[in-house]
Amino acid sequence: MTNELDEQKIVAQLKDPIEAELGFRSLIGTYKERLYWHIRRIVLIHEDTDDVLQDVFVKVYKNIHSFKEESSLYTWIYRIATNEALSHKKRMQRKWEGMSQSVEEASAQDLKADPYFSGDDAQLALKLAIDSLPEKQMLVFNMKYFQQLKYDEMSSILNTSVGALKASYHHAVKKIEAFIKNEEYG
């Protein structure tokens, strides 16, 4: 989590036409890795992640004046990144469906073909299991298991109660276990 003072400084710079570029560079430097991995775990492919990540930063830059500072910058950016990544994923799914391809198979093929995925069978199975989850469960599982975010942080990013998030995580873990067992023995 970024220091609140750092965040305020970045926002002030971004809103000042003279300092905007400096602020933009700090913004990217501060969030690039966290956002990259957040997006990557949703869209899976490196090239797609790169596109979405750039779009997210450009969107933040262009819309900074509509950021009301009621939530933290971190929360706001994570929300934008989540929405952009999910939109990208849906576009891909529509494209595959339009080509009469199974979404699961197309997603698996793409991941295997990504030169920046070097996972073994178990890692591939885990990614595909997560990918098969309903949207919210997928987000919660990634944010909890890999990013190790706290439930209250997730709650403000996803605008969902902590109780509902805990339930989603629980369901996600059960489904992933079942998915992987099915892959192994099914």
């Binding site: 570029e21 933009f24 430097g29 690039k32 990557r40 990540l53 920046y116 070097s118 885990l126 890999f146």
Partner: peptide
């Protein structure tokens, strides 16, 4: 996780995005 990024990816990303 088996996920990687190209070498130096995070180093020059500021310039690429700012130019946009």
């Amino acid at each position: 996780e088996g996920m990687e990024v190209p070498e130096g990816y995070f180093e020059n990303i500021e310039d690429r995005i700012v130019s946009k």
